[in-house]
Amino acid sequence: MRKAERFQRFLEYFTTHFPEPETELQYGSPYELIVSVVLSAQCTDKRVNQITPELFRQFPTPAHLAAATADDIFPLIRSVSYPNNKAKHLAGLGRLLVEEFNSEVPSNLEDLQRLPGVGRKTANVVMSVIYNQPAMAVDTHVFRVSHRLGLVSKAAKTPLAVEKELVRYIPTELIPKAHHWLILHGRYICVARTPKCAVCPLTSICAYYARQIAPLLENLPSLPSAPELPPQA
């Protein structure tokens, strides 16, 4: 199957069956989203959503966060991955938002990446979710699913390479949605260890399925036919 056709069928399926995907992070403002995304690095959205209500109760604005130290923040985020580093990042993020951005979350890649704890992936999430810009954030789910489906080439061995190949084929207005489609498909269907191919609606376009699963099914011995019952008297 040609790559353009694979993309077309991928987009057709999701625009039909899941037209308005949303992030699973719970937030009420751009400030809350960027904090949540920083916390979500190598951590589940479910865990982040469990701790952020109290975090935002104590630090409801960038100014409150800017006035805090890493030691103030750490007890509230200790259950996420790498809490020491993230506490330092959040304290620095709050200060930079206040000092250089008038407590507003910037809307461009360069300024976002100046914030502590914010790399290209986090910046793209903010640009996509908050500002609806055509930014493709490539996390582990997007990286895995795009390779398995065959949306990107084997040569795309870095998140940036995957991002560039994806945005080349996805219409600009659908890039923010496609980011969520790939994440959610990877989170619930195309999981890392044992993908749920039996319930996946995309097996007809999936390169992994064609290469790894379909040949096994073809080689299964056929079941014997049920014996015919004698005609009723």
Rank of each mutant, 00 (worst) to 15 (best):
219 N>W: 12
211 R>S: 12
98 V>S: 11
158 T>Q: 06
44 T>S: 12
47 R>N: 11
230 P>M: 10
133 Q>E: 11
143 F>A: 10
21 P>V: 04
120 R>S: 05
165 E>C: 07
73 I>H: 07
148 R>T: 07
122 T>D: 08
178 A>V: 12
92 G>L: 01
207 A>G: 05
2 R>Q: 12
77 I>R: 12
30 P>V: 04
104 E>M: 15
130 I>V: 15
43 C>M: 00
68 A>H: 02
132 N>Q: 15
113 Q>L: 10
219 N>H: 14
117 G>W: 13
180 H>F: 05
4 A>D: 13
124 N>T: 05
201 P>Q: 02
128 S>V: 10
78 R>I: 08
172 T>W: 02
140 T>F: 08
140 T>Q: 00
21 P>Q: 01
42 Q>A: 06
133 Q>V: 09
129 V>G: 12
172 T>F: 00
131 Y>A: 01
97 L>N: 08
158 T>G: 03
75 P>Y: 04
5 E>G: 09
114 R>H: 08
76 L>D: 00
52 T>P: 08
90 L>D: 09
227 P>Q: 01
74 F>R: 07
100 E>Q: 15
134 P>R: 01
131 Y>F: 15
142 V>S: 05
8 Q>W: 13
231 P>A: 11
46 K>F: 09
184 L>D: 05
189 I>F: 13
100 E>N: 14
72 D>Y: 04
15 T>W: 06
80 V>D: 08
153 S>N: 08
82 Y>R: 12
149 L>A: 00
18 F>H: 15
154 K>Y: 12
233 A>I: 03
195 P>M: 09
10 F>D: 06
27 Y>T: 01
106 P>Y: 15
27 Y>E: 03
97 L>D: 04
44 T>A: 06
130 I>Y: 11
81 S>N: 15
111 D>E: 14
120 R>G: 01
47 R>W: 02
66 A>K: 03
92 G>P: 06
187 R>I: 06
202 L>Y: 10
72 D>K: 06
131 Y>H: 13
178 A>F: 07
92 G>Q: 01
18 F>I: 11
26 Q>Y: 11
31 Y>K: 00
37 V>M: 10
226 A>W: 13
38 V>N: 00
120 R>E: 02
53 P>E: 01
221 P>V: 04
195 P>Q: 05
6 R>H: 11
22 E>T: 04
91 A>W: 04
57 R>T: 06
126 V>C: 02
190 C>G: 00
170 I>G: 00
149 L>G: 01
6 R>A: 10
13 Y>N: 08
107 S>T: 07
90 L>N: 07
177 K>P: 09
7 F>K: 02
199 V>A: 11
125 V>R: 04
59 F>W: 08
118 V>S: 08
206 C>V: 05
109 L>Y: 13
102 N>R: 10
201 P>A: 09
117 G>E: 10
52 T>H: 01
91 A>S: 14
228 E>F: 10
44 T>N: 03
63 A>R: 13
24 E>H: 12
107 S>A: 15
62 P>Q: 01
154 K>A: 13
46 K>H: 07
118 V>Q: 07
135 A>R: 08
210 A>T: 11
209 Y>C: 09
132 N>T: 15
58 Q>C: 02
110 E>W: 05
143 F>V: 06
166 L>A: 03
184 L>I: 14
214 A>S: 12
197 C>V: 04
3 K>V: 14
188 Y>P: 03
74 F>D: 06
16 T>W: 11
